[in-house]
Amino acid sequence: MSWLYRFASPATFYPLAGKLAPWFFAASAVTGLIGLYIGLIEAPTDFQQGEAYRIIYIHVPAAWMSMFIYVLMAFYGILFFTFNTRLSAMMMSALAPTGAMFTFVALWTGALWGRPTWGTYWVWDARLTSELILLFLYLGFMALQAAIEDPRRADKAAALLAIVGVVNVPIIYFSVQWWNTLHQGASVSLTASPKMAMIMLTGMLIMAFSAWMYTIGASLLRVRAIILEREAGAEWLKRHVAEQAR
């Protein structure tokens, strides 16, 4: 456990995050280009939706990340409450904007997809509504944290919202099974074989990987900014800056 505590210290994590971030961005760019090439050029058209289905290469990875990032935030929130580690709270805050962005992308691309296929941009079905609530949870999280002056109290309040809000994630995921929705069921799940052609699935999974790498890179950069803000004036930071200047 001691190595874990060492990396939970901002002094160790700050330079490490700075070194790792560019690699994650590079991985995201490379896999993103490959994924888009497979999805938009290599993969065939769909037998019922024609070209419109190609939005899945953006829509599905964005929707997956929107849910997964919230679970991660709740996880960091629990770590923060349990172990009182500052860095956990910082990671939680660093993830929120990326999560909100992916949620917005999922909703937006979904609307653009819905118009030509369903015949409407938006319906208030269980899947769409719960995903919209997720966007409000992300925005609420960021607003709550920004509204409280004292960073420690802000972290506590925000962590509580992250943990409470995580109840929404299984509702989003299972909404298409539990209730009649206009949104179709999952094409890819852990319990059933994928309901899509292999090359389409490959493109989508590569795009999901790219979204993952982007998320890690972006949150590492953001957590560095948060560390700088919170630890301004700390001895280790002064030493680090002095070393970098040499």
């Binding site: 065939p44 058209t45 769909d46 037998f47 019922q48 939706q49 289905y53 899945i56 296929t117 369903w118 015949g119 409407t120 319906v123 206009l182 179709q184 069921g185 999952a186 094409s187 309901k195 899509m196 052609a197 389409m200």
Partner: peptide, 27 residues
């Protein structure tokens, strides 16, 4: 007053759908 299409979660090229239909296992 409003009619919406509900598509399913199966994605495949038209040829594959046609092959499945010919083989007697339509989607």
């Amino acid at each position: 007053s409003q009619v919406l299409a509900k598509h399913d979660e199966n994605y495949m090229p038209p040829e594959a759908a046609e092959a499945l239909r010919k083989a007697g296992h339509p989607v």
